[in-house]
């Protein structure tokens, strides 16, 4: 079986798995990293949102063969560490606004939120309601309103 190597939450990992297995299953089933959730497997629900080299991506839609050894994959488990903190400011905002209900969507929501804020900040802007409207992550418990508040609050600390 082919061997694949990449950086995962700050550590180089190796895994033996077929080339076409999507990253979500490499993370969850092979490496036991269960923060990224399955909600569709077709890049729609965004529950699996993680980061590749600091940008949001959906591992359910990326074969492991597309990942290079020097690519840095960050999942919710590694988000705070990536900034050398116990909790990322966005996670803190999530706690402050008591966003989570069932919590299933929230790892993906937080990872998407961080990427979205980084994106607008790199454009030299502040996050707007239109930016928030672009976030596609489903929350079937209906926590969207608190998500919006938390993103705005978290953005100020990023």
């Amino acid at each position: 079986m082919p061997n694949h190597s990449f950086k995962l939450n700050g550590q180089q990992v190796d895994v033996d798995v077929e080339d076409d297995v999507r990253m979500l299953w490499v993370l969850r089933d092979k490496l036991g990293v269960r923060g990224p959730k399955y909600g569709c497997g077709i890049n729609v629900c965004k529950a699996c949102t993680s980061h590749i080299n600091g940008k949001a991506f959906n591992p359910c839609a990326v074969p492991v063969s597309e990942i290079e050894p020097d690519d840095e994959i960050t999942t919710i488990e590694g988000l705070a560490d990536s900034e050398g903190k116990k909790l990322h400011p966005m996670q803190e905002a999530w706690l402050e606004y008591d966003v989570a209900q069932c919590g299933y969507c929230q790892p993906g929501q937080i990872m998407a939120a961080v990427a979205k804020v980084r994106q607008v900040q790199s454009e030299g802007r502040e996050i707007t309601d239109e930016d928030l409207d672009e976030i596609r992550n489903i929350c079937r418990c209906g926590t969207y309103m608190r998500i919006r508040e938390a993103i705005k609050a978290g953005a100020e600390k990023m």
């Binding site: 969850r28 036991g32 269960r34 923060g35 990224p36 959730k37 399955y38 999942t75 919710i76 488990e77 705070a80 909790l87 996670q91 999530w94 706690l95 008591d98 966003v99 989570a100 209900q101 919590g103 299933y104 929230q106 790892p107 937080i110």
Partner: peptide
């Protein structure tokens, strides 16, 4: 009061059926 499982939810530690080992 905030939810007691909020910390686990935002850090990816909250376990659902498919997360159990």
């Amino acid at each position: 009061q905030n939810r007691l499982d909020a910390y686990d939810a935002v850090t990816g530690r909250k376990q659902f059926a498919m997360d159990l080992d």
